[in-house]
């Protein structure tokens, strides 16, 4: 097991290095020059060159990437020698348009994204799994049909529709949240009510689509597992239906859900662009969209992209390790 985990960690690290290098190459290929963008109207080639040097773009891509990696561990001074800005480790870069270390910007945005992801995750897992189990047990009956209506609505409504509908016709119509306080940050541990005020509806919006998919997935897994021979064995032993469902069926039926849940959660931690946009949450999604479309803030784009891919890879690793604990057949190898 230890060998398996350490090997997986090694692979994940290598993969992350490759991903980060690729991101630097991709941004090098984009036909837009940050050095020219921050140049004033009386731009001369000499000024552009100076800017390029200041931004650290005058060296090869490999060199830029290597400086980035070193900065991650040792901190880094950005800009000209002497008057440069120092960002302490882990330095993800320096945003010249915002005059701030990217690490600080990301650290301010991350609590929004994390709150949104955690809240939505709890909602969609509890709703999706319990509805799925319910409709599997009542297959073909009213509860199952009602659940499939929910599934249909949830999967066919895109977040940008459902989010706006929830915002306009529930949140604002019934004055559930003061529009001026929409998107305000509250610490969930010290101000749980304020936190719920900000995050309940965005989480619900996000959870709606996921819960629908998970309902469907849980339902089919439970139905499939129920027809396994070992469930018949459990019944032949004389176990009650309750124990068969809770212990024997769910254990096997929910194992694959752990996999996709882990990956979906990690995906959300990279930022939920649309939901954050609708509810005015200054999370990672909003941050990257702004950096791409408005300020063309390369260091921020690099940082958010890398964070998202790191989270997905780490989640993958965690899911695989968790799975080995759930399924003894995986452990053996």
């Amino acid at each position: 097991m230890l060998k398996y985990v350490s090997r997986r960690i090694l692979y994940t690290t290598i993969l992350l290095l490759i991903v980060s290098l690729s991101i630097f190459y991709i941004f090098d290929l984009i036909p837009m020059d940050p050095a020219r963008l921050i140049c004033s109207k009386q731009c001369t080639p000499a000024l552009v060159e100076a800017n390029r040097h200041r931004l650290g773009l005058d060296v090869s891509v490999i060199e830029q990437w290597w400086r980035f990696i070193v900065g991650l561990f040792a901190g880094r001074t950005f800009g000209e020698d002497g008057i440069g800005q120092f960002c302490s480790a882990p330095a993800l870069g320096y945003s010249f348009p915002r005059h701030e270390c990217v690490t600080t910007i990301v650290a301010n945005a991350f609590p929004f994204t994390l709150s949104l992801a955690v809240g939505a995750f709890i909602m969609w897992i509890s709703v999706g799994v319990s509805l799925g189990v319910l409709s599997a047990r009542k297959k073909g009956k009213f509860a199952d049909r009602a659940a499939s209506v929910f599934v249909l609505v949830g999967t066919s409504l895109p977040t940008f529709i459902s989010g706006i509908l929830i915002l306009l016709f529930i949140v604002l119509k019934f004055n559930l949240v003061n529009p001026l306080e929409l998107g305000d940050w509250h610490n969930p541990f010290t101000e749980p009510i304020g936190w719920l005020n900000t995050f309940f509806f965005p989480c619900a919006t996000l959870a709606l689509a996921y819960a629908a998919t998970y309902t469907r997935f849980t339902r089919s897994n439970v139905i499939e597992t129920s027809s396994e021979d070992y469930i018949r064995t459990a019944r032949a032993k004389g176990l009650t239906e309750r124990v068969i469902l809770r212990k024997h069926t769910l254990r096997a039926a929910l194992a694959p859900i752990v996999t996709i849940a882990g990956l979906d959660f990690a995906g959300l931690l990279g930022g939920a662009v649309i939901t954050e946009g609708i509810f005015g949450l200054n999370g990672l999604g909003k941050l990257s969209i702004k950096a791409v479309t408005q300020t063309y803030d390369l260091p921020i784009i690099v940082a958010t992209t890398l964070i998202a891919s790191t989270l997905v890879l780490v989640a993958n690793l965690l899911v695989d390790i968790t799975y080995a604990f759930i399924d003894p057949r995986v452990r053996a190898e």
Partner: peptide, 9 residues
């Protein structure tokens, strides 16, 4: 089939 009749977990 005792393989499928025993719970794998």
């Amino acid at each position: 089939d005792p393989m499928s009749a025993l719970h794998p977990f």
